[in-house]
Computed example of a mutant assay.
Amino acid sequence: MDLDSDKKRMNKTSSEYFLEEEKALDEETGIKITKNNEEQYDGQVNYRSNDRYLPGMYDDVALICLAWVRRFDYASLASLNTRFNTLIKEGYLYDLRKQLGIVEHWVYMVSDPRGWEWFDPVSDNWMRLPRIPCDECFNHADKESLAVGCELLVFGRELFEFAIWKYSLISRCWVKCEGMNHPRCLFGSGTLGSIAIVAGGSDQNGNILKSAELYDSSTGKWEMLPNMHSPRRLCSGFFMDEKFYVIGGMTSPNDSLTCGEEYNLKTKKWKKIDGMYPNVNRAAQAPPLVAVVSDDLYAVEYLSNMVKKYDKINNSWHVLGRLPVRADSSNGWGLAFKACGERLLVVGGQRGPEGETIVLNSWSPISGVIDGILDWKVLGVKEHSGVFVYNCAVMGC
């Protein structure tokens, strides 16, 4: 199977990918070579195992097996030979994983000046990403981030304008991302598969926005969406039931919003939801810490250090239990509250006898609440990394 054929097959649907067998005829030997590396001569079939991804196995079957290999091992896989390297580098396996519904979740975070690093909960391994090739202004300015598809997007301010840098899991490098139509900061955002939506925020002049944009990671392009009903900054966004929501935030330096807004991707319209987030946040407080697991919305109440669950039917919130770390001491800043597959993830710092440590705690809602107690499990620990989480994103692919 040559590389051009590889790429052509990976762009087809799964049924076409596994069923199509284009054949070539070697006129000198009379041997037909199929795309599955079969030799057919005088009606008999011999298999050229040495030309396959996995000896003794059809390539289409081998690719399915390789798709189940942990992403942590892709670097080792790519180093085996040129053919495996191309398979990883061109993203063929990621396309196949998407078709097969294979998902692993990695946690990306930055908690010290050395830059971004990622954590694989399955292998319990930490790795550091290359440094972003940005200017010093971007390095020291406040940043926001989100993971969409196989990309990590980091939003910040360079010397003269807002900038977006993205790290591709496939190419394993940073590149400058195409800018938004309305550059902004302090916005709400959420991701659904290969798309992301950002809404609200502030422009370079400090104006509070009600515009929204959709980013498609497959094309790298931004598309304007209809405006929200209210301008808001310091808000939070998320997808739930395949709809995008924005809650919280401030519509002016002194006025907080308790309403939420729902954007329907099919009708392309916003709907206002009064009282969706009654916890009023002030300018000194972090945007709402929210996460969605199995289409259920959860949030952190900073002042009480409690986790709440949203009742979609009654538009109300119910207290579940206490956080494993304190959020009140810093008004919610420096703490990450994310969905990681079927678990809620809290990433925060603590000081101990051996210094400053970042701890990743997880809780699965299906385990339930016992006597008002959530059974938090330590998912991972990063020692000597400070106690403040500046940015955090969870990538599932």
Rank of each mutant, 00 (worst) to 15 (best):
T219Y: 08
V110H: 00
N181G: 08
K312V: 11
N279D: 11
R97M: 09
C340F: 08
G237Q: 00
E158M: 13
G193N: 02
I370Q: 05
R9Q: 15
G193S: 03
S79I: 00
S211I: 06
L63I: 05
P130M: 03
L87A: 08
G220Y: 11
R131W: 08
W118I: 01
V387Q: 06
M1V: 12
D296T: 12
D241N: 05
E39H: 14
S362M: 02
K221A: 15
A147N: 00
I31N: 03
E356L: 04
R343Y: 08
W106S: 02
S252N: 11
K377E: 08
I358L: 01
R351L: 14
D375T: 08
D42Y: 09
L169C: 15
A339S: 14
G249Q: 03
N46Q: 10
N391S: 11
W317K: 06
S5I: 14
A336F: 05
S294C: 13
N279H: 11
C134P: 03
S145P: 05
K7F: 13
D2V: 01
I208L: 05
G396Y: 04
W126P: 05
L265Y: 02
A78Q: 05
S329L: 15
S362F: 02
S256N: 10
F155G: 05
N207S: 06
G332R: 03
R232I: 00
A284D: 10
E161G: 10
G334P: 00
D42T: 07
A291Q: 09
Y263M: 15
V110I: 07
N207W: 02
N254Y: 13
F238S: 04
Y310L: 03
W270H: 08
G201P: 00
A62M: 01
H229T: 12
Q285R: 09
A78K: 01
M127P: 04
K221I: 14
T34L: 10
Y94T: 14
V107K: 00
S111P: 00
L186R: 08
K377Y: 04
K8N: 15
D42K: 13
K98T: 12
V307S: 00
D241P: 04
M228W: 09
F84I: 09
D6Y: 15
F160A: 13
K309C: 09
A196W: 04
V325C: 13
F187L: 10
G352Y: 07
G321F: 02
N315Q: 10
I197P: 02
Y245P: 02
W333E: 08
G188K: 06
G179V: 02
L186I: 05
L87D: 01
I195L: 02
R351T: 14
K210S: 08
L265H: 07
C185I: 10
L344M: 14
A393M: 09
S49Y: 13
K309Y: 03
H318T: 14
R282D: 11
K269Q: 13
A283L: 14
L303W: 06
N11Y: 06
V300Y: 00
G355E: 10
N264M: 07
D295I: 06
V148Y: 02
G352Q: 11
D4P: 04
M1R: 09
S256F: 09
L152N: 07
P287D: 07
A163C: 14
S330L: 08
F138P: 06
G91E: 02
N314P: 01
W270A: 03
L77E: 03
F160H: 13
C185F: 10
V280T: 13
I64T: 12
S294Q: 15
K266L: 15
